[in-house]
């Protein structure tokens, strides 16, 4: 379980960091409004939301590493999987990324988040599966 916890921690850090360097704003691209003001594109908000998801995922990973009980590991697996699903949904359904396929958020940020989200979902489900049954049954 320590390995799954470590996977959660590593992916959580990457989920928080990768968008900071791969959204369009990091490449110096912003939307210019009619009045001349410059505003962030939606990939930037996806990146910030991912940072918000990465923090609880980091905590879940940490708890998973030190957790001794099957029930708590199972619950942490479910929470981790759910957070992984949010990682997947933010750049696809909930907020999205820019339209232009040449933008870094489309070619790098979105696929990275989808890959990491999928890894977290599968690892979380793996933790649930490996901790199935109660402590008494195992004994």
């Amino acid at each position: 379980m320590k390995v799954i916890g470590a996977v959660f921690v590593i992916v959580a850090i990457l989920v928080g960091i990768v968008p900071m360097f791969t959204d369009c704003e990091s490449a110096g691209r912003m939307l210019t409004l009619a009045d001349g003001r410059q505003v962030s594109m939606k990939c930037h908000w996806t990146g910030l939301a991912e940072l918000g998801v990465s923090l609880p995922l980091l905590v879940v990973g940490g708890l998973m590493i030190f957790s001794q009980h099957k029930e708590s590991r199972r619950t942490l697996g479910i929470v981790g999987s759910s957070l992984g699903a949010v990682v997947l949904l933010l750049p696809t359904v909930l907020i999205g990324v820019c339209m232009n396929p040449d933008m870094p958020c489309v070619s790098i940020m979105k696929p990275s988040l989808l890959l990491m989200g999928a890894v977290v979902v599968v690892a979380g489900l793996g933790a649930v599966g490996l901790n199935w049954g109660s402590e008494q049954q195992a004994a």
Binding site: I108, P111, L115, A118
Partner: peptide
């Protein structure tokens, strides 16, 4: 295999470029 196939599928526009 699963991770590699998924990564290649997701990053294929970047690979092409």
């Amino acid at each position: 295999i699963a991770i590699a196939a998924l990564a290649i599928y997701l990053f294929r526009p970047l690979i092409v470029r």
